[in-house]
Amino acid sequence: MQAYHFGGGKARWVPYLLLLPGMLLYVLIALGPSIGTTFFSFTNATGIRGAPVDWVGLDNYNEFLLMGQASRDNLAALGRTLIFCFFVTTIQFALGLLIAVLVNKRVKGTNFFRTLYFMPVILGAVIQGLIWSLFLYPLGGPMAKILEFFGTSSEFFGGQPSEAFAWVIAVQIWANMGTTMIIFLAGLQTIPKEMYEAAEMDGASGWQTFKNVTWPLLTPSVNTNLLLNIIGSLQAWQLFLVLLGYRNGTQVLGYLIYAVGFGQTSGSVTSSFRQGYAAAASIVLFLLVLLLGSIAQFFLNRRERRILG
């Protein structure tokens, strides 16, 4: 609790009062329903109101994590989620930073490049997917032609699971790098020009300036971006839906939850809605995201305190 300067008595309640609407919305729309999900995860709920809902204890968790080959398949999907998270986070972070630094330079046309790189973000997963399905059209599409020129070929999204998976990672990075770039750019622009001037006067090289001025002062943006990328990529699945469908060897947890929750695991059959089971799976994903997110948060905070005091 920090010293409050804007008066005591009744005036002390003003920040609480103004904070209330946002808090209420949050509890209503996010927190409340999520607690509901936790509750559902211990039942055999189908999501149909009026249908009997029985308390099944840890059955859903047991089935998801321990029962038969299906549980090993689930764990494989979990592993795949981590692989996806690792590649997307690292590549997107590095590219976003590189591009942000470059488009922050005083060279002509930076505005054009910024706009272009950010553009996919505004399109949404469905359209990103459509655009890439077209660009990676295997029967004489542009990328097929390029690969042909280099004497190779690819089945793209229709290829082997690992290949299709790699293409989804590429599209995911293409689609979201703009956000990372913008957040870095916002951070870069808060760094006063005098700092760079001072560094230049001190004769620092480009790399030294980056290392000693840019990088430490970017800390808030670094934190935001890393957290967003980790969490976002752990939860991302829409591109898998749009580009691949529910295919063996490519499922990630988020997609798995949606598919079992809404009876879409087999492509053409509408099976039962296993929302209790799906809820248990989403709690597992939640714990995973929470764990990785908290670890990242812990180290980032420590680093921030060290640098910015």
Partner: peptide, 19 residues
């Protein structure tokens, strides 16, 4: 419940569609 994801008679498990 608990059956793996290959417990189906699907031709698409063969290459090039599957592994």
């Amino acid at each position: 419940k608990g059956a793996g994801q290959y417990a189906n008679p699907w031709a698409s498990y063969f290459q090039p569609f599957g592994t």
